[in-house]
Amino acid sequence: MSLRGELLAFVRGDRGADRVVPRSGQSARLTFATAAAMAFLAVFAMALSMASGRLADRWSSALAQSSTIRISAPPAEIEAQTWAVLAVLEQTPGIESARALSDEEQQALLAPWFGPDLPLDDLPVPQLVEITETADGYDADGLRQRLAAEAPGAVLDDHDRWRRPLAEAAGRLRILGWLAMVLILAATAGMVTLAAQSALSANEQVIRVLRLVGARDSYIARAFVRRFTIRALTGAALGMVVGLLAVAILPSARDTAAILTGLSFSGASWFWPLIIPPLAAATAFTATRIAAFRTLRGLQ
């Protein structure tokens, strides 16, 4: 029978076929419990992956323009040092562009603290240079050394750069979350295969009788496949619901970058975990089918 016919027969079900194999309490319960536990874990892996994905996106965009250089020097030297700094930046790998802020811009930055009428020319206000770095970033320590040599009054302020490794970590965490999902599925497939194999060998005599009265392998396999698929589906549904509840009641804090409080789904992504039970069912279906046909071919 084709796989499609197989699926159809599977969905239609057959009371007779379900009954011919005796209830195998142990392996069926094991499959249910495993599927539930794995689905629970999968919800967390998914939440982790999505939350770290959101963090990675937010942090990376904040990183785009993250550093400034502050040049404090006697008024006479300011201009020369500013040129020196820009020349150094020009030759530094990892810097996309650099720009000295104009007096108006500096005034606008200081206005909140000192009011709009600040006489900038009379005050020893440092000159600011804004750095936009490339995706790869620059070597901050190397830049600091060169600045110290070329422009002693320049101070590199990479206040947001500390987030770069975090953004990278968040990106990695997203991949790890998906990898965990894949591993959970693989572990589920392994457990179901073992449970199905144990059920198949426990029922070897039953299978022999069925073969003798003319049952095809597909009929016998279906009895097992149906049972394990349904167990995996219901188990995973239970695990998913419990997992979602657990994620939903995690305390959350707005606008914090902490991964702990951000571990949640947002908006439409709450629907993503719904794919876990069908995925578990498909895994059990395939694993049991392979195990069943392999075992059956070994029996005459």
Binding site: V20, L210, V213, G214, R216, Y219
Partner: peptide, 11 residues
Amino acid sequence: ALPLSVTGKGG
């Protein structure tokens, strides 16, 4: 009735 069941003629 098993031979009927395994060939789908059980019902």
